[in-house]
Simulated assay, not measured.
Amino acid sequence: MGKELYTIIEKLKDVPEGICVNIRHSLGTSDIVKTASSEGMTDSSRLKSETYELYPGIELSFHCYLADHFHIRHCHGISVLSIDHCRAGRIGWEMKGGLSLYFGSGDLSFHYTDKCSDSEITLPLGYYEGLSIALDLPVLQDSLPELLNDAGVDVRDLCLKFCGDRETAALPASSRIEHIFSEVYDLPEQTKLPYLKLKCQELLMFLNMAEPAMENALDAHYSEQVSLIRQIHDQMTEHPEKRYTIDELAKEYLINTAALKSIFKSVYGMPVAAYMKHYRIMKAAGLLRNSNESIASVARAVGYESQSKFSAAFKDIMKILPTDYRRQYTHV
Rank of each mutant, 00 (worst) to 15 (best):
D234M: 14
L203N: 01
R230P: 05
F206C: 08
H233N: 11
L228F: 06
S227H: 11
S223D: 08
S227P: 07
L203Y: 01
F206I: 06
V226A: 05
Y222T: 09
L204I: 06
H233V: 07
S223T: 10
P212L: 00
H221E: 04
Q201G: 15
M205L: 09
L207V: 03
E211I: 09
D219Y: 10
H221I: 03
I232P: 00
L198E: 15
I229R: 00
V226D: 01
P212N: 00
Y222I: 07
A213E: 10
Q231N: 14
E202T: 13
N208T: 04
L228W: 06
N208Y: 04
D219K: 10
K199W: 07
H233I: 07
L228S: 12
L228R: 14
I229A: 04
L207R: 00
I229Y: 02
D234P: 07
F206V: 05
Q225L: 14
K199M: 15
V226H: 00
C200Q: 09
R230M: 10
N208G: 04
E215S: 08
I232Y: 00
H221T: 02
C200V: 10
E202A: 12
L218Y: 00
V226F: 03
A213G: 11
M209Q: 15
R230A: 03
Q231E: 15
E202M: 08
N208R: 05
L198K: 15
L203M: 03
Q201D: 10
Q201Y: 06
H233C: 09
Q225D: 15
K199E: 11
L228Y: 05
A217I: 10
A210C: 09
M214A: 09
L218M: 04
S227V: 10
D234F: 11
A217D: 07
E215K: 05
S223A: 09
E224A: 13
R230D: 06
L198P: 06
D234L: 15
L218T: 02
E215Q: 08
A210N: 05
A213Y: 10
P212C: 00
Q231D: 14
Q231M: 15
Q201H: 08
H233M: 08
C200H: 03
V226P: 00
I229W: 03
A220L: 02
E215P: 01
L198G: 14
A217L: 11
L207K: 02
M205R: 11
S223Q: 07
Q225C: 10
V226R: 01
L228N: 12
Q225W: 11
I232E: 00
M209I: 12
L228M: 13
F206E: 13
E211Y: 07
L207D: 02
